[in-house]
Amino acid sequence: MMDMKVANLGAASMSMPAIGEPVTRNEEANHELSIRVRDLNLWYGQTQALQNINIDVYQKNVTALIGPSGCGKSTFLRCLNRMNDLIRGVRIEGLVEMDGRDVNEVRMDEVALRRRVGMVFQKPNPFPKSIYENIAYAPRMHDLVSRKADQDELVERALQDAGLWNEVKDKLHQPGTSLSGGQQQRLCIARAIAVQPDVILMDEPTSALDPISTATIEDLMDKLKKQFTIITVTHNMQQAARVADYTAFFHLGELIEYNDTKTMFSNPHTKKAEDYITGRYG
C-alpha cells in the first residue's frame, strides 16, 4: 500500500511542475497549509470520478474550484469533509491531509472532521426549526456552549458575522424557512460558522440566488476569509475572479491547472483552462 503511494507520487511529479502547488504564487495571499491532497482517486462504482488530484489549499484564503459540469468539483469538495461516505459504492484512494492527519484514516472520526470542516450547500437547507435553533443546535450538540446567555451571544455573533443579524434580530423564533432564499443561504453560512470550523466548503452557494443576494454573499466570503479557509465551487467566472485568491480548474475528473486567480484569468498556463475561461468550451 505504502509502496504504491510512493510510486504514484513519483509518476505524478514528472507531469507537474511542483506537486500540489499553484503555478504562480499570489503574493498577497497567506501560504500556511490548510489541506494537502495527494494522488486522490475516487470511484463511483466502476466509474472513476477523480483522477490523481494533487493540491495544497492554503489557510485564510478563498480557493475557487471551476470547470465544466460533471468534472468532479462537488465530488472533490465532498472528499474534504467525507460527505462521500454517505453515498453508496464510493471508493477513495489517496491522501487528504489536514493538520497532519489523513482524514480518511480509520481512527479519524468523521464527526470531528465535519466540526472543523463545515459545509454550505447549493440549495439553502435550513433545518425546519426556528432561526435561533438553526444556529444554536450544532454548538450545543458539540458542547461549545452550555449556559443560555453564552448561547444567545453565540447566535448573535454568528448572525452578525453572516451579515444577517439586522434582518432577523426581531424574529429569531420564526422558522428559518420563512426567510428569502438569499437570507436562508446566509443563515446556512451562519450555521456553519457557529461551530468555529477551520474550513468552510461552499458548493455553488449563490447559484440559486438573485444578483443582489449573490453580491452580499460574495462580500461575506471576502470578510469571512480573515477567519476561515473558504473553498467554493462556482460556475460564475466573474465570481471566481472577484472573490478567489487561488483558482483550480477541473476537467473530466482531473485537476488541470491550479493557479493564482489573477494569472488564471489573464494568462492561463494550460490550453484547456484558457478555452474554458474564454468560453470556447463547456
Binding site: R115, N125, F127, P128
Partner: peptide, 24 residues
C-alpha cells in the same frame, strides 16, 4: 437535504435521525 445539513454540522447518524429526521 435535511440529512445533509445535519451531517454537515457534525451530527452523528443517530443524532441526524433523532433530532432532524424523526420529528419530520
Amino acid at each position: 437535504n435535511i440529512r445533509h445539513a445535519a451531517f454537515g454540522v457534525g451530527c452523528s447518524r443517530w443524532q441526524v435521525v433523532r433530532d432532524h429526521v424523526l420529528p419530520l
